[in-house]
Design a protein around this nucleic acid. Sequence first.
DNA 1: CTGCGTCAAGAGCGGCGCTCTCGCTTTTGA
DNA 2: TCAAAAGCGAGAGCGCCGCTCTTGACGCAG
Lengths: 228, 228
Amino acid sequence: MVAPSLRARVRAGMIEEIKTVARRHLDTDGANLSLRAVARDLGMVSSAIYRYFPSRDDLLTALILEAYDALGDAVEAADAAADQADLRGRWLAACRAARAWALAHPAEYALLYGSPVPGYAAPDDTVAPAQRPPVTLVGILRDGLATGRLAPPGEDLSEPLRGDVAELVGLLGMDVPPALLARGMAGWTQLFGLISFELFGRINRALPHRDEYFDHQIGLMADLVGLP
Amino acid sequence: MVAPSLRARVRAGMIEEIKTVARRHLDTDGANLSLRAVARDLGMVSSAIYRYFPSRDDLLTALILEAYDALGDAVEAADAAADQADLRGRWLAACRAARAWALAHPAEYALLYGSPVPGYAAPDDTVAPAQRPPVTLVGILRDGLATGRLAPPGEDLSEPLRGDVAELVGLLGMDVPPALLARGMAGWTQLFGLISFELFGRINRALPHRDEYFDHQIGLMADLVGLP
DNA sequence: CTGCGTCAAGAGCGGCGCTCTCGCTTTTGA
DNA sequence: TCAAAAGCGAGAGCGCCGCTCTTGACGCAG
């Protein structure tokens, strides 16, 4: 561990500063991040940014990675803070944490889960952090199965699908029946849909009590996945 | 009804041609539609487009309206084509039709349900066509309740929410218990989430049998809303 | 035939992502 | 120690973009 040189430290600070300003622009101006505007805010010329990020997409990728981790942290922390024996409480807490993070960072949420930026292809290192929220949800179900608090799913998957999902189970390293993983993914899909509708859509314009609506819907979903 | 002049007919044809080319660009190049590229394809100069659409956003709005109607048509047609007594069959057919349309027109689906375009605000006339798919789904539930094939929902909504949803029931002109409308919206939310994950996400990269996965998940959801 | 409304074209404005060059400073290694 | 190497910011410039304004040609009704 050699001490970083002055230049390396200044460089790291500069990278952080660029990301901070870019995140601010993202939250105020929406998804179309302008490198030139970020550079102006920093009192630099746009070409100087390219010393730190080889392209606008790479800057976006850095922001996306941090956002995935922030969301994953929030969801996992909420799950961990709940009474571990109260499966339904853990599930609801994880869902509420995801929504709270999304409402607090709408532009970053849109970056993660909105329509993909046309020219942009997410690199592979975004896959693992992106899976943290659904893995957390499925983990709650796995704990329930392991402690006997959750009944095994009554349905099973028909053949071509069971192989796929079983492989996914192995990939995630979670020992659950494929049908239960499918239920967990249904819950994750519903959670994503609820948050997206609230953030993007105008569905809920007629629903002033958004918190109650969200709670009711994740309650329905907790019933579906089998949480008592 | 006066006969349209030659000029008016040419103008209407030109508007259609612009929309057709723009839709093609949308499907190939993604969401960032370039007025100049559309004009090039038409052998025009970019400024000429402004004779027909006052701005790029107005062209986008025209495409969005048509896309909402196309999706609504597809979903309603699938529902109408099914055996009206088979509620679950109608529900599944409507869901499959929505997915099929989205897979056939991914860029237009992204325009409707992806993250909102930064500067763009959807005008009010997009609200009604946007509600056609969820209204279709809830309509199936309403028919089930009316014919006694669907049991009324066991749960009820707690107070601040019940008023909201009851108002929404009146707004849509559908006579269903608020809790049932909430279930229908849960189904619509799930459908949107499933399609969006398949189109945008990389969740299903490990699931080659997408049709089967989709069918399994909408089957779960049909169970939740109470369809036998 | 004349004048009005519509049309396509062109020039131009400011902004964008990105590249390349040019001096300047810091770091590095013989 | 001191020159070579590497990193840095500024600037000019490329080809895009949405959009505006002006110009000259054309169809059409009075």
